[in-house]
Design a binder for these strands. Structure first.
Lengths: 218, 218
DNA sequence: AACCGGGTCCCCCGCACGGGGGATTTCCGA
DNA sequence: TCGGAAATCCCCCGTGCGGGGGACCCGGTT
């Protein structure tokens, strides 16, 4: 089973460089090259590759916008890897919020890029070490222990994970895409969460999550 | 410039395995092996290695506690890599909160472990891809957009009132009863609010209201 | 061996919801 | 005097959602 890859970057040289890298691997196939974000979105919808490697700086629509559009599609199965020269913080956060499977710097060695594609394809995620370092720092700060409601202990890890995504106003289909499971599964999890917490519907769940500090901000 | 490494794990076989892995590299030196967390803290203080690789499950003091003690020391220069068999979520958060430079699964290929040590030594951080995936889901939720919602000015007083009630997880029928109007009226208001704020449904409205301080928490 | 909990996927069904229209009154400012 | 905006109410229609079942697999426990 070979993995199909779409490459999006406005520099033709970089595109062919990546294509060359991928084609050293028997199980990777570069099925397309595009030079801007809008074309990336269109080609992902058409070719449905396993992984799309997007540059952040692109004409017409940048990599972040393209990522958001691609992953907003409930029927989407393509994982997105973002590639950038500079690791600006806002980029990282927006990318992660959109659900990208990876955030990598262009200084990445070729073999790591190959490895990243495989990681993304199997549903895992990967962040460049230098970015991870700052991410941890920020993450630690945003981990102020709020009075955790006791009934939360009733939930399984998966259920809590789903609740988090519900609280972020994601639809069942979006959650399914994000977690790489079927939407029926998500419905089951949501139902269990509602039953365990004694909530009527997802609207109550969102309010509950926000009022109990399950959603942190600033 | 060689990097010194301390290995802490209660399985002697795993310790010597790691030592063997590190000693295939000319620039890595395994300067110590310990079998429990308290010894790890002591040896880090004594040997001051560049990197300490700690198992999470250890006698006397687990890897998380050891990490916290090591990194709590202001004079510390040692980076901590945590290694575990199971990727329980609480472990991850606690580890990142303590400031670990890495959270890796024992299924990691040897060459990746070597690479992780080098990454940690230069001050960057690294998280196992399967863990990163869930970290992103959680992190996405903890991201809040702008503190300023200027589009709120677009709403009429009545619409803001309805939005407040929606944010409190009330159904259209409940809001209608509360405001002594028909439920069709409420539907009209809700639709206008969604349109003006560019929101998809009432779930987004609830999240929006909470994230923009429209709902005070106690 | 049997059991159980967690995770995954599937069906049917009812309904609240939200968009598309349109309609009426009131009230304020041009 | 004549808009026009705001608030109220109305109908149709599609669909996302949630309840209530059931099913399978897998990892532990008994």
């Amino acid at each position: 089973m070979t993995l199909s890859v779409l490459v999006a970057d406005d520099h033709a040289m970089l595109r062919s460089g990546m294509r060359a890298i991928f084609e050293t691997q028997a199980d990777l196939r570069c099925v397309g090259e595009v030079a801007d974000g809008r074309a990336a979105v269109a080609e992902v919808a058409r070719l449905r590759p396993d992984v799309a490697v997007l540059d952040i700086r692109m004409p017409k629509l940048d990599g972040l916008g393209a990522t958001e559009q691609i992953l907003a599609d409930p029927g989407n199965r393509t994982k997105v890897l973002l590639l950038t020269t500079y690791d600006s913080d806002e980029y990282v956060y927006r990318a992660l919020n959109a659900g990208a499977s990876g955030f990598l710097l262009k200084s990445l060695p070729p073999e790591e890029l190959i490895s990243a594609v495989r990681v993304a394809a199997r549903g895992d995620a990967l962040i460049d070490p230098s970015v991870t370092q700052r991410l941890i720092a920020r993450f630690a700060v945003s981990l102020a222990p709020p009075p955790t409601p006791p009934e939360l202990a009733l939930l399984t890890a998966r259920e809590r994970e789903v609740l988090q995504l519900v609280a972020a106003a994601h639809s069942n289909a979006e959650i399914a895409a994000r977690l790489h499971v079927g939407d029926e599964t998500v419905k089951t999890h949501v139902s269990r969460v509602l039953a365990k917490l004694g909530l009527r519907d997802r609207v109550h769940a969102v309010a509950y999550a926000h009022m109990n500090g399950l959603v942190r901000r600033s």
